[in-house]
Structure formats: structure tokens, C-alpha cells
Design a protein around this nucleic acid. Structure first.
Lengths: 339, 339
DNA sequence: TTACGCCGCTAATACGCATTAACAAACGTG
DNA sequence: CACGTTTGTTAATGCGTATTAGCGGCGTAA
């Protein structure tokens, strides 16, 4: 396993395998000219070393020498990510772009990452992430194995969203779901709710687990009963049968659907049933209701993720794990519990 | 003035001034260390040569020497640009990303481009576009001078949106506004409109000029009178005073505003006044009306722009200027002209 | 006169890769 | 057995810049 901080170069591979840098280059570029050929065994030895070290050619050097790297530039006279859009991931990108611009870095979108089972992969033949000085990882869920490998290889990266340790602490800028969720639970308790429901998975991605953790601990502290239910067709009936007067939804969109169904059943929101949305919609949701809950500081998270990454790259110290507070949204779906 | 095809290098400057490449580098970087200093006269001589030749440092070599490529990677397990958003530029990006993925290229967003007068610049100290094999240029308006320079330097690039020649033909994938606009004009003529108004600039960006051109030629051919009006407070009164029964708006958002104002004045749309929107909203617009007009094939334009760029890079021949048809939208704002 | 320090500049080198010319070894061929 | 030929590999070089060590010349102090 590699240990040093420096990039692995063809020279390194060459030394490891006892061949010349030229040979490595030839193997890499799969040149099969009659003019220049490499014996199969040699080729294999080199390839093994490349795989072991996770070497990828420096795109800059490549471009200088060969006038080609596999980058397509996108230039706009204005930021590509216009603020104020509805999509969940959008504000993150806005923050990332803004901060990257402020520190004079270009953004490399790994669109060429190999797709396996319908989703992109970080690791496969080569690790394209190494093309950049450092990386931002974005997504609700990150493959723990891939994360562990990134850490093991000492790659500079920062996750947007808290992550559990993966063979070591993961640098991240996340949202403080536990605190934000707990605050909502306390508010509900103050309004007289004695039995409250959490609708969602409560596990899986860290963001779900964090919400649920905040829910349960705050419920316990406030002396109210919290029950967890998975979102299904009959969940509305179930939770009412259990006497719940307030519903905390992990997913905004589910909340919108549930509230609509409640309306169809003649229940008034929030007079008969309160709703709390634990964060912004990650899927498109349509509703007329002004949901009570909190807002995820997405743009700020994107920005700070770049800040942290920049600090890591500069070797500047500082915390590499940050949790940002969510902004409470008063809304109009949480009211005094029905008697 | 330089004549050769090769880029000017520090070596060239050095030879011209009779100093060493090192000196040029030092002058360029304005190093004022005690360790290394340059006499004012020498410095001035070098600077003059730099100004004369228009030399700019090659960003590639610069980043190679700096051992930092200043790329920040952004990785997501899914496409960063989710389809179906409201922003005007968004679908272009979606298309670009999709095609880039399909041909195995990563995208480099030039967020670090120097900002002058509040907008990014391609040229200044260095031309970062060179960091990539080729570039996509996106935006309503592209600086003709910068375009001309890109062409003169033989850079591989493709514009999204038709562009006038700039010292040579500009590779582009654009929307066929003239044809699409003309079709709408003919439709209006068929419905009995004899005097129709074009509200907008009709010049400036190619996309505006193209719309207006389509408008005027089609109006002439159909034997109807077309008048152009700038969007102002009183424009609605003006065009009615001139007897116009249909309004063609360059900007969707302006159309929404005008239609709303018409409503306030007791005019029914489209019974009393027809509206045609020449393309999708570039600014956020809110309206209940289902506007008649056409849709710009934005996603497809983004995709094909990458295709063209790819062909240019591969040296594969083929047309480097493409106009894609716009899809007509029947809508509900164009009706038979009021008697 | 020697010693020392400062000024102005340059030669050499590194950065990581691709490419070309060349070279040693093995292998026929006449 | 001398002489091409093929095979597998490498030394050398270039891409354009930044950096470092060092060199000659001049002025001042010892």
C-alpha cells in the first residue's frame, strides 16, 4: 500500500517493477505499434503495479506532453448553477461553485466515472478522483467500502453530509439533524402532544439515522412516546390507531402525500393532526401546506465543504468535521394537540 | 505582431529581449524577493515585449510546475444535473453531461475564470480553456472579441447557440429561431391577424436577431404588417393604438407581464389580444396562461454540442454548424383576430 | 591589497508524461 | 561465420513554466 503524500508517478511504477518510465508509458497507452512492443509478462507486471498503487496519469502533464487529456471544458460567463432552483442537490452545487470560484479552483465533474449496476463507481479500473487535487463527495448515500478505500489511500476529500467512520474519521460538512429534530420534538411536546410518530426508515443513510436519533432521545427526555412507522399505504390509519397526534416525516414528499390523504379522510391539518417535515424535499413534492420543520443549510454546506477541502490541501489544520445548524421553519402544520 | 502559428513562449520573449527565460518568468511573476531582482530597465524591456506579443503564460505548464492542478473534483453517484428543472440553462447542462458521460469525458467547469466588470473572462492572464481538450461555450451572449481570438488561436470549442462569424466561422449548435418564429407568424396570419407586434430588442445577441429576422420576413411574405416595440411601461397601449391584434414576445417573462397587464385592463386573452412566446422563459416568469409559441430543444442542443466538439477533436469531418428545429407549442393564447 | 557583501542576472533542474532514435540480444539466412 | 532482422527495452529529449543555486562585477571596509 502506498503511504507517501506525493502523487504516484510513472517513475514510481517503473522503479517498483524494475523497468523504465518509458515502458510504463507504453503499457499505459496500450501502444501496439510494430515499432515499440512490450513482452506480455512485462506488461502484466506493470499493470499489476498500476492496479496496486491506483496510479492514474496526471492530466496536466498529459496535456502538456500529448495535448490531450479527457476533459471537456464548460465555460459560461455566469455561474452555471443559478441560485433558487427547486432541486434538492442544487443549492449544494451553488455553494461549491461559489467557494471554488473564490479560491480560484476549477470544478471537475466526474461524469466519466464507470457505471455499474446503474450507478457510478469511484473505484474500478482507475480512480479518476485522483485527477483532481481533492474532491467533494455528494449524495445521500456513499458506499462505505469506497469511502474506506479513499481514507486508506489517504486521498483528499470531503463529504457533504455527515458520514460514519469508515476505517477512520471521514471529513465532512453535515447538517445537525439530531439537534434540529430534537427541537421540533420538544416544541410538539410543549404543545401537548403525548404520542408522536416518526414516518420513515430511521436508518440506512446517516442523514436518516441522525434524524431518528434526535427524535427518540428528545422524545424520551420530554416524556412523550415516539413510535416509528414505515411509509406505507395504511400508515395513516396505523398511526392514528396508535393515538399519535403529530407526524414527523423523514421525507418531505411523504409528508405531502400523507397530509393530502388526511385531508381526503376529513382530517384537518393541523387541528386534527400535526405534521413536521424533517428537512427540505429531496423528491419533488406538491402541496399547498406551509410545513413546519427546518431548512437544511445546503448552500452553506457546499461552500464550507470546499473550505475544508482547501484547508486539507493546504495542510492548514482545523476541524475536518463540521455540523451546521438547520434553520427552524415555523410553518403552519404544527398546532396544539387535539384533546 | 507575431506571425507564426506556434504559441509565444517565455523563451521567445527572452530571445527578443536578449535575456534569459528565467528573467522573463521572474518579471512575469513580479517577484520582488531580495534573493532575485531585476533592474527596472530590464524589467521594462521585457514587459514591452510581453505587451507587444500579447504573451500569456500557458496554464498547463504553469500548473505542472506548481505541482497543483487546482482542480476540485465533484463526485456524485448520480448525474449532478437532475432533469426537469425550471432554470433556462439547466437543460443544456443536462444534455452536455449526458453526452460527456457517454463518450467517457469528464467535465471541467471554469469557475475560476477571472471576473472583470462582474462577468467572467476567457482571456486575461492565461486562458484556462486550454486546460481541457476542448470547450463548450454557454450563454446568451458571447464576447465577439474573445470568440475571434479563440478562432485565431485555433482552439477547439463549440458554442451552444448560433453565433455570427468572428473572423471566421464559429462552430455551434443552435436553435432555428427564424423558422420557428416564421411558422408562428404564418399561423397568426391564417387566423386573420393583419397587424402584429414584436416586443423585444430584435438585435444584440444572435438569438434575438434571429427571432426578429424570422418575424419580419414571414410577416412580409404573409402580407401582414409587423411592428417592433421595445418592452416599456406603456408598450401595451402603444401596440393597441397601432391596431395590433397579436403580440410576439422575445422574452417569455415579458409576455407574462404584458398578458397580466392586459387582463387588468379588461382585455381577454386571447379573444381580445393574442400572445405568442418566442421560446422558453430565460427569466423566472409566473403566469396561469398556457402560452402559444415554441420550445427550444435545449437538452438536445447540449448533447449535440458535445458531439460536434468530439468530432472536432477527433479530426472527424462533419458539419460544425448545426441548427435544430424548435418544437411548436399550440398553447391557448393565440386565437382568431378580433374583427 | 584582500575580504566581504550586494546587485543583477543566468544555468541548471524539476514537474510528469509521450515520443523517437537507438541499442543489445536473440534469431534466422546465405 | 559474417550479416541482416526481428524483438524488447531504454536513454534522451521536448512540452512551457517556476525555482534554486551560483556567478561575475562592483563598491566598501579592513
Amino acid at each position: 500500500m502506498p503511504s507517501s503524500n506525493r502523487r504516484v508517478t510513472q517513475q514510481d511504477i517503473a522503479r517498483m517493477t524494475g523497468v523504465s518510465q518509458t515502458t510504463v508509458s507504453i503499457v499505459l497507452n496500450e501502444r501496439d505499434d510494430a515499432a515499440v512492443r512490450i513482452a506480455p509478462e512485462t506488461r502484466e507486471r506493470v499493470l499489476q503495479a498500476i492496479r496496486r498503487t491506483g496510479y492514474v496519469a496526471d492530466p496536466i502533464a498529459r496535456r502538456l506532453a500529448a495535448q490531450r487529456n479527457r476533459f471537456l471544458g464548460v465555460f459560461t460567463y455566469e455561474p452555471v448553477f443559478p441560485a433558487g432552483l427547486g432541486d434538492f442537490y442544487h443549492p449544494f452545487l451553488v455553494g461549491i461553485e461559489e467557494c471554488a470560484e473564490s479560491i480560484g479552483c476549477d470544478l471537475l465533474l466526474f461524469t466519466s466515472a464507470p457505471v455499474i449496476d446503474g450507478r457510478r463507481r469511484i473505484f474500478s479500473q482507475d480512480n479518476r478522483l485522483r485527477l483532481a487535487d481533492g474532491c467533494i463527495l455528494l449524495g445521500r448515500w456513499l458506499d462505505p467500502q469506497e469511502l474506506a478505500r479513499l481514507i486508506a489511500e489517504g486521498q483528499a476529500f470531503v463529504s457533504v453530509g455527515r458520514r460514519d467512520d469508515a476505517g477512520g474519521p471521514v471529513p465532512y460538512v453535515g447538517a445537525d439533524y439530531p439537534t434540529a429534530t430534537a427541537a421540533q420534538v420538544r416544541r410538539a411536546a410543549e404543545l401537548g402532544h403525548r404520542r408522536i410518530a416518526y414516518v420513515g426508515e430511521g436508518s440506512g443513510p446517516e442523514s436518516h439515522a441522525d434524524r431518528y436519533r434526535g427524535f427518540t432521545t428528545a422524545a424520551a427526555e420530554a416524556g412523550v412516546t415516539g413510535v416509528r412507522l414505515r411509509y406505507t399505504d395504511g400508515v395513516l390509519g396505523d398511526l392514528r390507531a396508535q393515538g399519535c397526534t403529530a407526524v414527523f416525516v423523514e421525507e418531505f414528499a411523504d409528508g405531502a402525500l400523507l397530509a393530502a390523504e388526511a385531508g381526503r379522510r376529513g382530517l384537518r391539518v393541523p387541528e386534527d393532526l400535526s405534521f413536521v417535515a424533517l428537512g427540505d424535499p429531496t423528491r419533488p413534492a406538491s402541496t399547498d401546506l406551509d410545513f413546519t420543520g427546518y431548512r437544511i443549510p445546503r448552500r452553506e454546506m457546499g461552500w464550507q465543504a470546499v473550505e475544508v477541502l482547501s484547508a486539507i490541501l493546504d495542510g492548514t489544520g482545523g476541524a475536518t468535521q463540521r455540523l451546521l445548524p438547520c434553520e427552524p421553519v415555523a410553518g403552519a402544520t404544527l398546532a396544539v394537540a387535539r384533546a
